[in-house]
Design a protein around this nucleic acid. Structure first.
Length: 554
RNA sequence: GGCCUGCUGGUGAAGCGGUUUAACACAUAGCCCUCUCAAGGCUACAUACAAGGGUUCGAACCCCUUGCAGGUCACCA
């Protein structure tokens, strides 16, 4: 009997709900203006949101937004073995924390858009419709080789120093006759569908990558699996079908995909579909024992973006940092336009660096300080509260106990030309300000006060006593400080360190030493923010109480 | 190992054949300022263009070789 490829195709896919023509009608071209980019973020739900993934998502969204295009999310959940339940939803939630909100696609709970479904596991019939066409064209065929067969093949090839893989004369199933194929399928033998490549590994093709420019790569000649035995497609094939029907114009993805680009191009060519533009992004690296390597999910805490969130870094700083890696001119631009954000910046793929940047924590920390200093006291309180609700119940309780008081603490020196930059993460907020709260202060004050042993106790007591008695901070800071100097003078402390150093016989210290005594009495520590502000926030009564407490202890 | 990509100071990087004695930012160190700590200002980081060959009047920029690093070679994405 004479079989045709059509018979084969019908045998494998007897009842498909639609044909390619149907699909083309179902997913018409998008109506977008010239130059608008359609980009996507296509994660697989295998765990948490990787720092590198956030980076690519941010870039894809930015490219779409600034061009007036569409950014969508597609779930690449074709590997049921590696899937981590619940992670896809979590992924979208974390994305949202960074303002990466898709215009369409998979949303974590449901989806929106005209080009769905946006979960690959729900698109099986779409892939099959395309594969059916490929089989009819003779460009796809069933392969009955077992995993063991393939392993043996690879071992042989490696032993003989041949390029490993299923291609050319090693692709045994590609030369099976239609009769044989049909008979074995009818016989119930398990199989996968492979693409029949017409490429030649010795021929080079020229490709253009948006970030890397012109490249010459070897043609693909591998008959890769396009449909796995579980009926789901492999990445390569899903990429072809989805990015075609979803009308993606720019595929941005990690550079690990560069080497499969010739394959993807051959796939598009075979279907006579116009391929998208490609942008292969550098991967974020880490220095490990002097060697650069990819941030690893298993080894590196910072590979999970949630690590930074938990630690309390503001998301604005993380985005900021990722953008400095994405486009090196971003930092300079931002320095010139401090009031603008990355949303106003014009990003280009061409300006991306080609090799993966080392993740630089101290740079992130620097940016985090810069970011947090710009928050108003109210923003600081709101953001800290949002953080605390999720990660730090103690901080939450403290803020909620008196939100206004917390804002006052956050306002310290905010009105100055050079405001303090002492916070880089929300998690520091409590520890640096515990002394403001009596519940903690009562505990802290039980420790020995670190007064300078150089000064006699009686002197310290007298100074503190007089300070409390003449307490007046209802005047401008400068005036208040002048008063402090007078007090210092009275007890033979110089106006400043310089005078003291020049006249060690006349003075026993300088005003800084006096300030330290007060600071210790008020905060139990030698270091604290500006004293004047502390006095104001604590209030007269509390200041007096704390000073008396200190005197008693002395 | 084959193939691909890359290699400017500790980190991120400007640079695109001659105004470069190689920007800028982070980090580090010192000084100044200062009520402490931060912040800020100034200075420094002694040979940073992977190495060696070319091409050229002239090279970080072009070519070749070597080295190193990363990626990739799955019914994973």
């Amino acid at each position: 009997m004479d079989y045709t490829t059509k018979d084969l195709a019908e045998l494998i896919f007897p009842d498909l709900p639609y044909t390619i023509e149907d699909l083309n009608r179902m997913f018409p071209p998008r109506n977008l203006k010239e130059g608008a980019m359609v980009t996507r973020f296509a994660p697989s739900p295998t765990g948490f949101l990787h720092t590198g993934s956030l980076f690519t998502a941010l870039v894809a969204q930015k490219a779409a937004k600034q061009s007036g295009g569409v950014f969508y999310v597609r779930l690449e959940d074709t590997d049921s073995k590696r899937e981590v339940v619940g992670s896809s939803k979590e992924l979208l939630e974390q994305l949202k924390e960074f303002d990466v909100i898709p215009d369409e696609g998979y949303l974590g709970d449901g989806e929106k858009g005209q080009y769905g479904p946006y979960q690959q596991s729900k698109r099986a019939d779409i892939y099959k419709a395309v594969i059916k066409e490929l089989i009819i064209k003779g460009r796809a065929y069933p392969c009955f080789c077992s995993v063991d067969d393939l392993n043996r093949l690879r071992e042989t090839q490696e032993r003989n120093k041949q390029i490993p893989g299923y291609y050319g004369r090693y692709a045994s199933c590609r030369s099976l006759t239609l009769e044989q194929q049909i008979a074995r399928i009818k016989n119930g033998e398990p199989y996968v569908i492979r693409f029949r490549s017409l490429g030649n590994h010795n021929h080079k093709i020229e490709v253009t990558d948006l970030v890397r420019g012109r490249l010459f790569l070897a043609q693909n000649d591998q008959d890769i699996v396009i449909l796995k035995s579980d009926g789901l497609p492999t990445y390569h094939f899903a990429h072809l079908v989805d990015d075609h029907f979803m009308h993606t114009t720019v595929v941005s993805r990690g550079e690990e995909w560069l080497s499969s680009l010739p394959l993807h191009l051959e796939l598009f060519e075979t279907m006579e579909w116009e391929p998208p533009h490609y942008a292969h992004l550098p991967v974020i690296m880490k220095l490990d024992n002097g060697n650069k390597r990819k941030l690893s999910k298993r080894k590196d805490d910072e590979a999970a973006i949630s690590f930074f969130l938990k630690d309390g870094y503001p998301k604005e700083a993380i985005i900021e940092y990722l953008f400095t890696i994405a486009n090196s001119n971003y930092e300079e631009w931002h320095a010139k336009n401090p009031s603008l954000t990355f949303e106003n910046f014009h990003f280009t793929f061409e300006k991306m660096s080609l090799d993966g940047a080392l993740f630089d924590l101290s740079k992130l920390q620097f940016l985090a300080r810069e970011t947090m200093v710009k928050f108003s006291p109210k923003e600081m309180k709101d953001k800290a509260l949002a953080y605390a609700k999720q990660y730090n119940p103690e901080l939450e309780r403290v803020i909620l106990s008196n939100p206004n008081y917390f804002e006052q603490i956050m306002a310290i020196e905010k009105d100055k030309a050079n405001p303090r930059k002492d916070y880089m993460k929300y998690s520091e907020l409590l520890d640096k300000n515990r002394f403001f709260y009596n519940e903690f202060f009562e505990e802290m004050v039980k420790e020995a006060a670190p007064f300078n042993p150089l000064f006699p106790k009686e002197v310290i007591v007298s100074i503190l006593q007089e300070f409390a008695d003449t307490l007046n901070f209802e005047v401008p800071e400068q005036e208040w400080f002048e008063g402090l100097k007078k007090l210092a003078n009275k007890y033979h402390f110089a106006d400043n360190n310089k005078i003291y150093k020049a006249n060690r016989e006349t003075y026993i210290g300088h005003v800084g030493d006096v300030a330290e005594m007060i600071r210790i009495a008020l905060t139990t520590s030698k270091q604290s923010p500006n004293l004047y502000y502390i006095l104001k926030i604590l209030g007269k009564e509390e200041v007096k109480r704390r000073i008396n407490l200190a005197i008693e202890k002395l």
